[in-house]
Each structure stands twice: as C-alpha cells, then as structure tokens.
C-alpha cells in the first residue's frame, strides 16, 4: 500500500511538470503582454517597457523563465502580480478558501443527491419514476451552468425574493448554497445516471440473488451489497470531477459575485497576469492529481479484490 502510494506520487511529478509547463507556455508564448497592458490604451515608451520587462525577468528565454518560476514555486513563492504588486500567494490565500468551500458544498450535494436519485431510479429501472429522473438529468446536462445560474437568480432572487441576487458575503455558508447547487448541476446529473446504470446492472448479479435468498433484510441488501458494488464507476467520475468543479467555479462565481479563485483568475486573464493564472491553474492541477490518487485508493476499500502491492 505504502509503496503503491509512493509510486503514484512519483508518477505525478512528470504530469505535474508537464501541465504547468503547458499552461506556462500558453500564457507566455501566445500574444498578449502584461507589461504593455499596464499602459492600457495609452501609447507606451518602448524603452520603459523593455526596462520593466528586464526587471521582471520577462526578457529571459522561456525555459529560463519557467525554471525561475518552478524554483520559486518549490520555495513557496508563487510570484508577484505585476499591476498591483501583490504577492500571488496572497491573492490565492484570500480566494482559495472561498472556492474550496463552494466546491465542497457542491461536491457533497452532488454525492448525496446524485447517489440517492440514482439509487431510486436504478432500483425501479424503466418504471415511471426512473423515466422522470432520466428526463430531469437530461435537462440538467443540456442547460449550460451559466444559463442555470441566471435561471435560478431570476427565479429565487427576482421572482420569489428568497435570496439576494448576488452573494454579499463570500465567507457565509448560507449564501453559498444557491451558487453551489448551480455549480453541482452537471455533476449531479452525471452521478445520478452513473449510479442508476450501475445499480440496475448489479441488481441482476448473482451475489444479490444470494443475499436475497439467504434472507437478508432489503435494507442490507441494497445498502451494503448493492450500493458498495455499484459505487466504483461513480467514485471514478467523482475523482476527476473535483478539478472540473473548481474550474466551473469561474462561471458560477461570476454570476453570483463570489470572491473566489474563479473571479481572481478571470481578472488575471484579462490583465495577462501570467504568474497568477499559472499559480491558480497549478493549484487546480494538484487538486485534480490528488483526487485521482484518492480515487484509486478508494477502489480497494470498495472492492477488496483490488489490492495494491
């Protein structure tokens, strides 16, 4: 087990370096210039730009810039924003907990509601209730999250007046409820469908027939035997989903004015602040990699036949 984790952690390193390098290249090779952006619409003195670039190390060759960035990163230095002179670590430290909270909220909602709905539908596959759930998930998959966000905003804030249209205090759990549900929408639909398919399939398995035949109570058959075996594809999906939830927060946070990393990255992108964008994406890549490691370890918990030497 320990050796397996160690090996997986080692395998993460090339993927991590590759992903950050890719984002780094995209940020720095493509046109767009953070130093030039400081002047906005005004014409800038080329000599001044060149001097500032030299000072910031932006005139070095790309590999050198990346090396500087990476060595900084391993010393806990995420770099500094060019326009505001704020350390990127500060920006992240302020915004990340908000998004983390939003993501956890959305994740819990996805798991609880998705597995429950999927179980209900899967146990009665091809009955009326199953059709309703399937149709509902089809709708959720089709409606892009920004549409869902505005729909909820219109309905719950403007028509019903239950909530304020935008989040006033990004630290408050209660206010994050609506954005979290919007963020969870797509994942909820996928989890529901995966659980449903898996439950309906496993319902025909031999071990379920055995469990029923030996007289176990229905609750135990479903809750222990069926659910545990049906959750493997769901867990696989959830592992890759944590990263996409964080990325999806860009849209949700914009609609509801949540001051998280989505907003921070959007601002940074518009100003071409490479270090901020790379820093935040790096963080999301780490979350993604760790989540997929946890998923692999969870397999062994769910299915004891899977062992890691």
């Amino acid at each position: 087990m320990g050796r397996y984790v160690a090996r997986r952690l080692l395998q993460m390193i090339p993927v991590f370096i590759g992903s950050t390098l890719l984002i780094f290249c995209m940020m720095y090779v493509l046109p767009g210039d953070p130093v030039r952006a400081l002047w906005g619409e005004q014409s800038a003195d080329p000599a001044q730009i060149a001097a500032l670039k030299h000072q910031l190390g932006l005139d070095l060759p790309l590999w050198h810039q990346y090396w500087n960035y990476l060595t900084g990163l391993f010393q806990g230095d995420f770099g500094t924003q060019i326009a505001s002179q704020r350390p990127v670590a500060d920006v992240i430290a302020q915004a990340f907990p908000v998004t983390l909270r939003l993501t956890i909220f959305a994740f819990v909602f996805t798991v609880v509601a998705g597995v429950l709905l999927g179980l209900i539908a899967g146990l009665r596959a091809d009955k009326a209730l199953d059709r309703v759930v399937l149709f509902f998930t089809l709708l959720l998959i089709s409606v892009p999250s920004f549409v869902l966000g505005f729909l909820f905003q219109y309905l719950f804030a403007f028509k019903l007046g239950w909530v304020t249209p935008t989040v006033q205090d990004s630290e408050a759990w209660g206010q994050l409820l609506l954005p979290a549900i919007v963020l969870a929408g797509l994942s909820l639909a996928y989890v529901t469908r995966l659980t449903r398919t898996s439950v309906a399939e496993n319902l025909r398995a031999d071990y379920i027939r055995t469990a029923v035949a030996k007289g176990l109570p229905h609750r135990r058959v479903v809750g222990v035997h069926l659910l545990r075996n049906s959750l493997i594809p769901v867990v696989t999906f959830l592992g890759t989903d944590v990263g996409s939830l964080m990325a999806g927060a860009v849209v949700t946070e914009g609609i509801f004015n949540v001051q998280g990393i989505g907003n921070a990255i959007f601002e940074a992108l518009n100003r071409r602040e490479g270090s901020t964008v790379v820093g935040i994406v790096t963080l999301i890549v780490i979350v993604y990699l760790v989540a997929s490691l946890i998923v692999d370890l969870l397999y062994a918990v769910l299915d004891p036949r899977i062992r890691y030497a």
């Binding site: 993927v15 992903s19 995209m26 996409s244 990325a247 860009v250 993604y288």
Partner: peptide, 23 residues
Amino acid sequence: RVTDIFQGIPFLLGAMVVLTSFA
C-alpha cells in the same frame, strides 16, 4: 503521458487561457 498532461488541465480554464491571447 502527453494525454495525461493535457487531461490535467481543466478544459474550460485551458480554453480561456488560450483564447484571451487572441484579439
């Protein structure tokens, strides 16, 4: 491995990064 690297980058965020460079 190359596929893994691309897969590690969130789809929407990556597209945003690429697209902001184009006027």
